[in-house]
Amino acid sequence: MLEPLNPHKQPFQPGEIALVGAGPGDPDLLTLQAFRFISQADVAVYDRLVSEEIMALLPTDCEKIYVGKKQADHKVPQERINEIIVEQAHLNKRVVRLKGGDPFVFGRGGEEALHALASGVSCHIVPGMTAASSCAAYAGIPLTHRQVSRACTLITGHVQSDGSLDLPWSALKDKQQTIVFYMGVKTLSIIVEQLKQAERSDDTPVALIQRGTTPNQKLVKGTLSNIVDLVAKHNIKPPTLIIIGDVVKTFEQASLANLGYLAANK
């Protein structure tokens, strides 16, 4: 087991839950804190986007419970997931709730932590690298850039139960604001139309990053005027991150010869 670099860190005790962010896919992006909790797990309740390499770090005798979701396909409802992690903790196990990205960024970590605490179970929160910063960096896209973008807004692209995508669209019209949509491929046509109505120009740059930070990463760039057609042309599927704003063009005129990983993955 990896010893904590900070010896005053609270230990992971039997009967406790750790909500652990596994990052966006590349196991190199796993934090030391996340690895420390993973290496002590008696049971792991894990999501669909946790990579095989990270799952392989669990102890050999760790029980694994899959509760993964796809858009509009939740085989295990969230309420049941909340119950499972508490039930396992009540069996005096060290429970790692293993999530892609960060538990508190569109990961429902808040709901699970509140349920654990309401059930009298201690809960550790272990942040992870979220897809917005990780996938953007691997694609050579800074989310903010001086004189180009002074703000970044993270948004979920999931529709409501009535099929609507109710967002403050008028607040997203600032040209110097980067917009990042998680889980937005299936609603991209709505996103594009609403941003145009909010006075974002047709030539606003857009990047699609499919399976970012993994060996299967695919990067497609376009504009609001053609990005919906490019999804079909390049067969873009979830999980895909959508980045909208002038930062998408930051490195287009630069030589990639000295950009290391970016050059290798151009």
Rank of each mutant, 00 (worst) to 15 (best):
S170C: 04
I227L: 04
P239Q: 06
A139V: 10
S133C: 12
S161N: 15
Q176I: 02
P239S: 11
L224G: 05
A41H: 03
L219T: 15
D203K: 12
A131N: 00
N226L: 05
I179R: 12
L256K: 10
R211Y: 15
C135A: 15
S164F: 08
D229T: 09
S170K: 14
P103I: 10
F104Q: 11
K218G: 01
S51N: 08
S133P: 00
Y182G: 10
T213C: 10
S189R: 13
I155H: 00
S119D: 09
L57E: 14
V50L: 08
D202F: 12
V20D: 05
E3F: 02
Q197C: 05
K75P: 01
K173I: 03
S161C: 08
G163Q: 06
I17S: 03
F181D: 08
G212N: 12
A136H: 05
F104Y: 14
A118G: 00
D61C: 11
Y46I: 01
Q147D: 15
A72N: 13
V45G: 12
L262M: 10
H145W: 07
T213I: 06
K99L: 04
M1D: 09
G25C: 03
S122V: 14
V228N: 09
S39A: 15
L208G: 01
E87G: 07
C123H: 00
V180S: 11
